[in-house]
Each structure stands twice: as structure tokens, then as C-alpha cells.
Amino acid sequence: MLKLHYNLEKLSMGLVGAIIVVASVGGIIEIAPLFTIEETVEIPDDMRPHTPLELAGREIYIREGCYACHSQMVRSLADELDRYGPYSLAAESAWDHPMLWGSKRTGPDLARVGGKYSDDWHVAHLIDPRSVIPVSIMPAYPWLTRDLDTGLIEDKLTTLARLGVPYDDAMIENALADARAQSQPDSDGTEGVRDRYGDDIAVRAFDGDPLRLTEMDALVAYLQSLGTLTDAAQEMLTEDVP
């Protein structure tokens, strides 16, 4: 062995090859089976993709770095089930490019925050967290009241569809209209969004103003959708825990 190494040390390309081979093993054995073992991700029947508005909100969530303080992953630990709700399933992020599981909880987990608070609360909290939670250390995001940039929204759905997210042609074509309609509860387009994404989606003036489509609309729509794309997690837990 030592002799072998003694000779390897003399060959720079030999060392290069050896390093590549030795370093590849672990990744291949751990990653490849995640694509082949079917039980890894089981997509439930009721699962829906994010609406264009929620997707835009997700991008604001990423842009502002909310994931630096918030996880979206309820771990399989009793106290987390108690505090946050059913543990997260792999399926719930199966169409997430990228996943936003997070690695730090300066603030609470958000995987199940959808529906927990009202839109008004989210708006107040995002504009000034300390107006509702005096001891909060979350940053304020007053600039989210500006208009939402929807310039690339169709391209975004197209790209995601290419990567396997089930956005069909009608969804892509109507992306912009759907984003507007979801934040204008009394407009003509609301039926269309509901047709395409299901009756369970929230159609509201999330920021309180149906006339303007703002970043706040998008982000709040996204937050309100967290944990609501499928009921599988709730059902899984109620089946097993009385």
C-alpha cells in the first residue's frame, strides 16, 4: 500500500485521477438512488403547483433572503409536530426549484403558515414586524408595497414546465392574467384561475387594494399557500395519530 502511494505521489495526473474517483463514490451512492427508489417521492393526487402569483411571491421570498431565517421543513420530531403541524413530506416540495427547506430558524418554521394568519396581519407584519410583535427581530420590508414586475412571468412558467412542473399551455398563456385575477376577487378572470388551479386557491386582494398588483400581493399569496398545496400531510398524520 505504502509503496503504491509512494509511486502515486510521483504522478500528478495519477493523483488527479485518484482524487476524482475517490471523491465521486459517496455522492453517486447517495444521490442516484434518490431518483430510482420510488417511495422517495410519492406525488399525491390532490397536489397542485403554485399559481403564477404565488410563484412570483416565492421569488420575492428568495430575493429578500427570508430562507436565511425561516425553515420550511417540519422535521419528524414530536415537538415539531406539536408546534407546527404534520411533518413535511418529500412530495410537498417535489415541484420546488429550488427547495426552500432552510438551515436556520431565527424565526419560526413556515411550512404550515398558510391560513394561520390573515392577509392584513401579514401585510402589517411585513411592513413593520414590531407593530404587531413588539419583541420581533425580523427586518421590516416596507418596500414590498411597490408594483409587482410581471415581465418574465410567462417565461418562468415555461421554464418550469420544461423542468417537469405540471404547468400546461393554458396556464402558461394565462400566467399574467391569472396573476392579476388572483388578487382581484371581483374581476372577470377569477373563474379562470380557479379552473386552472383548483377551487381551494385563495382569490383575494391580499394587500387590501384590488386595484394595484403589488409585491405584497404576491408574497402574501405565497405565504398563505404554504402547506396548502396538498392535504396529504394532514391525512397521513390523522390516519396514524388518533
Binding site: 417521492v41 420546488d96 429550488p98 427547495m99 418574465l152 421554464t159
Partner: peptide, 26 residues
Amino acid sequence: ALPVTWGAGESYTIWTGVQDAMIQWW
């Protein structure tokens, strides 16, 4: 990753969900 368009400084990673998580932390 797949860029949204060539002119956009935005893209989506080709990985999703648990595979993305594993590759990210690998």
C-alpha cells in the same frame, strides 16, 4: 440550472425537492 431566458439573470435549478436538498448539502 435553466435560465429563464438568456437575457434574464434568473434561472431555475434543474433539481427539485428532496434531490435538490441532497445535492445542495452534498
